[in-house]
Simulated assay, not measured.
Amino acid sequence: MSQFTGYDVAGLIGVTLMLIAYGATVAGKIDVKAWPALLANLIGAVLVLISLGHDFNLSAAVIESAWAVIALVGLIRLALGRR
């Protein structure tokens, strides 16, 4: 039986964060454009990208990169809107 690596743990934590954020937005618990959802998605995507450093998959890297950029843009817009 193989053991989890640090990359596996990072990826699993990242996926968990993104699923929790998605579930919370669908359930109406948090706003999809609010910082908690955006930050969870950004951190989650970055953690999945880190996990892909061990076992690379191009399609997964593309979607996670896009997910991270979208979340980052949302966070920047929130930060600039509060000035």
Rank of each mutant, 00 (worst) to 15 (best):
I13V: 14
L47K: 05
I50W: 08
V46M: 12
Q3V: 10
A34G: 13
G44F: 05
A71M: 12
A24C: 12
L52K: 07
L42G: 04
K29Q: 07
F4T: 09
F56Q: 07
A61P: 09
V32H: 06
T25D: 03
V48C: 03
S59A: 13
K29V: 11
N57R: 15
A10W: 08
L12G: 03
S2M: 13
P36F: 01
L38I: 02
S51L: 04
P36K: 11
L19K: 13
L42K: 06
K29T: 07
D8I: 15
D8T: 07
T16R: 07
L42Y: 08
S65N: 12
V46S: 12
V48N: 00
M1F: 05
I30R: 09
A66Q: 01
G11M: 06
A10T: 02
L52E: 01
I30L: 11
A34W: 00
F4L: 14
A61I: 06
L38K: 02
V62A: 08
L39M: 15
W35H: 10
G44D: 03
I70F: 12
A66G: 11
S51A: 14
F4G: 00
D31S: 14
A68N: 05
I70V: 11
L19F: 03
T16G: 07
A60V: 09
W35A: 15
V15P: 00
L12M: 14
G11E: 00
A45N: 09
N41M: 02
Q3R: 14
L72R: 05
Q3D: 13
G28K: 10
G14F: 03
A61E: 06
H54V: 05
D31H: 08
H54W: 13
A27W: 15
V15A: 15
